[in-house]
Simulated assay, not measured.
Amino acid sequence: MQHLEIADRVATLTLDRPPANAINAAWVAGFHARLDELAARDDWNLLHVRSALRLFSAGADLKDMRAQYGSPEGRAAFQVGVRAMQVLFQRIEDLPRPSLAEIGGHAMGGGFELALACTFRIAAHEIQLGLPEVRLGLLPGAGGTQRLTRLVGRAVAERLILGAETVDGATAERLGLVQWSAPLADLPAAAGAIARRLADLPPHAMAEARACIAAALDPAVDGFAREVSGGAALLETTETRALVARFLDRKG
């Protein structure tokens, strides 16, 4: 269901559950297993999530929905599955190193919620993405209402979620849903270049910077103090001191 390869400090996780990368319990368990593999290794700086199929992910498995929506017990089981997706996506968001979602096919519902859990997103101009669950009388419950609102603000989140609107990759970039977009034919090369560039950056500095960005969204944390303490911690590392020394030497 997922394949993991590591090269040049990029961990590429390829989604491959035909025909639509639908998310079920086995899919979630497989993703956790790949993350367990990464947790035991230190030879990667970036997780690059992509799909081997025409779709990035269509979201929740329709077979499960058909089986579960007919009874109270089944509906309760479906909610357990949604909670399992929340846990997985939070684990992705909390990874010690950043992640990049390469969205080269439609990403709907849980599929887009997976992408929202990643640090970075790049989408093909031609694909469609969104959280259209309201059309079915549901809501995007695997973190979609929370992450999308934090990402783009209430107005855009309400437009997309309450309006059950899907948008193409170019529009997604304009709205701030993704950081980059490219024509489908150019997407793998563009995503690969971004992944390699990010993987070459010092992971310890990226981790501190990510913590400071998170602090900016947490009213209980003094983000300015977090910047000072994070910067001081970085200056104590041999990696940062070496990088700063080389920079100053080049500047004469």
Score class of each variant (00 low, 15 high):
173 E>D: 11
170 A>D: 13
137 G>S: 11
226 R>F: 02
135 R>A: 13
106 H>T: 13
101 A>F: 08
169 G>M: 04
171 T>S: 13
105 G>Y: 06
166 T>H: 05
106 H>G: 08
175 L>A: 08
179 Q>I: 01
130 G>A: 10
118 C>I: 04
174 R>L: 14
161 I>K: 01
219 P>N: 08
194 I>K: 09
236 E>W: 11
178 V>L: 09
150 R>A: 15
140 P>A: 14
165 E>N: 07
222 D>S: 10
202 P>V: 02
188 P>I: 11
167 V>P: 05
200 D>Y: 03
141 G>K: 00
164 A>E: 08
197 R>I: 03
143 G>W: 08
139 L>R: 12
183 P>Q: 08
170 A>C: 11
168 D>M: 02
130 G>C: 00
234 L>E: 03
189 A>W: 01
153 G>R: 05
174 R>P: 07
190 A>P: 04
185 A>E: 15
137 G>W: 09
217 L>A: 14
101 A>S: 12
154 R>M: 13
177 L>H: 03
231 G>P: 04
124 A>C: 04
104 G>N: 09
207 A>L: 11
227 E>K: 12
209 A>I: 15
177 L>K: 06
162 L>Q: 13
180 W>T: 01
139 L>E: 13
162 L>W: 10
173 E>A: 15
235 L>W: 13
150 R>G: 15
180 W>C: 06
112 F>D: 04
231 G>V: 02
148 L>S: 01
141 G>I: 07
123 A>I: 04
209 A>D: 10
101 A>N: 06
225 A>R: 14
226 R>W: 05
179 Q>P: 03
120 F>D: 03
214 A>R: 10
183 P>V: 04
121 R>E: 09
122 I>D: 00
156 V>D: 07
235 L>E: 11
153 G>V: 03
199 A>M: 05
213 I>E: 10
234 L>F: 03
192 G>F: 02
187 L>D: 01
229 S>I: 12
208 E>P: 06
164 A>P: 07
151 L>M: 12
126 E>L: 06
212 C>H: 05
111 G>C: 09
99 S>Y: 02
172 A>G: 14
153 G>M: 05
236 E>N: 13
102 E>R: 10
212 C>M: 12
209 A>P: 04
209 A>S: 11
223 G>Q: 10
237 T>M: 09
148 L>F: 05
181 S>K: 06
231 G>L: 11
123 A>K: 07
170 A>L: 15
167 V>T: 07
123 A>M: 07
153 G>P: 02
117 A>K: 01
116 L>C: 02
178 V>N: 01
233 A>R: 15
222 D>P: 02
238 T>F: 12
237 T>F: 08
100 L>N: 06
178 V>W: 04
135 R>N: 13
203 P>W: 01
102 E>M: 09
215 A>R: 00
144 G>C: 09
191 A>W: 07
137 G>T: 11
199 A>S: 10
130 G>D: 03
113 E>P: 00
140 P>Q: 11
106 H>W: 12
130 G>F: 03
209 A>F: 12
